[in-house]
């Protein structure tokens, strides 16, 4: 079909102008993180002004660019501590959290979307409810359960379990909402063709829900990737620490090494960006008109 671009699609140039400006503003604080990381120093950014500053002096002061560029912070972060090992631990924990979280959430989300059963509303609500109780007081009860009862201190499994359950409620709700938008007729026709419920779920529903699965995967990953206090509390061996724990060594207490922290933060966000790059194609490949018509 031929489309008249002039009337239906917005003009691209203004969009680009807007996006460039907005993106620059949005990454401005991030640029400061880069500036601190590459400065070779340790102090948090403070505008350095000469006496009686002019417009240009002020402009220079607010431009995030280090006076000298140095990689020393990155080098120190990677060599002073077993940071690579900690990133690896984080990767394993976050990846397993993603797999487990997405698995548990897709099945539950599917049931909540497709079946009507007693306790359905209550069940769905209870997932939401679990997010409502503030986590600050949960540390000791969780410690008792994971380390005391289950004996999972200093293990990956303990952390994965906790992170996955933290991520589940949002994932279930998100997926349930998305499953709701997938037309029932698709399943009906498959059922007529003799497909089992499990087959329908895996072959039809999951592929169609790719954007939502991508979102939940990213979310679960982030849950496991950035958590600090539980990881620091459950792990009793330095080799088992995760990257956020390693990062926090640079701050807290009397002195703060912001240069190291910034460099570490950048290293730590690289996998997240990579994952997002990988998930992007699923994020923008949803239902097509053809699929609905079946």
């Amino acid at each position: 079909m031929k489309r008249s671009k002039i009337t239906d699609e917005p003009e691209h140039l203004p969009l680009h102008v807007f996006l460039v400006i907005f993106t620059l503003l949005a990454i401005y604080p991030v640029l400061w993180v880069f500036t601190i990381a590459f400065s070779g120093g340790q102090s948090l950014a403070i505008a350095d002004l000469p006496s009686d500053p002019t417009f240009l002096d002020r402009l220079r002061a607010i431009l995030p660019w280090p006076e000298q560029v140095s990689l020393s912070n990155f080098k120190s972060v990677m060599t002073d501590q077993p940071f690579a090992r900690w990133i690896l631990n984080s990767a394993v924990v976050a990846a397993a959290t993603t797999v487990l979280g997405v698995f548990l959430a897709t099945t539950a989300g599917y049931a909540f979307s497709r079946f009507r059963f007693p306790g359905q509303r209550a069940g769905l609500m209870s997932f939401l409810v679990s997010q409502m109780f503030p986590g600050t007081l949960m540390l000791i009860p969780l410690y008792i359960i994971i380390v005391g009862w289950l004996g999972l201190g200093s293990t990956w499994i303990g952390l994965i379990l906790v992170y996955a359950t933290t991520a589940i409620p949002f994932c279930v709700w998100m997926l349930k909402g998305y499953f709701d938008t997938i037309p029932l007729e698709l399943e009906e026709s498959a059922r007529i063709d003799g497909a089992t419920p499990i087959q329908i779920f895996i072959r039809i529903i999951l592929p169609l829900a790719k954007p939502a699965v991508a979102v939940t995967a990213l979310f679960s990953f982030m849950t496991g990737w950035n958590e600090f206090i539980l990881a620091a509390t459950f792990m009793d061996e330095e080799v088992m620490y995760t990257a956020p724990v390693g990062l926090r060594f640079f701050v807290g207490g009397f002195s703060q090494q912001w240069g190291y922290f910034a460099a570490g933060s950048i290293i730590v966000s690289i996998p997240v960006v990579l994952l997002f790059l990988f998930l992007q194609k699923y994020l923008v490949s949803g239902l097509t008109a053809g699929a609905v018509k079946g």
């Binding site: 949005a26 604080p29 991030v30 400061w32 950035n226 956020p244 701050v251 922290f261 997002f276």
Partner: peptide, 20 residues
Amino acid sequence: YRVLLILPWAIPNYITALIW
């Protein structure tokens, strides 16, 4: 654009909050 715009989420907020 998409990748740049998720950076505020990707960078640990402990440092970005203090930069703010």
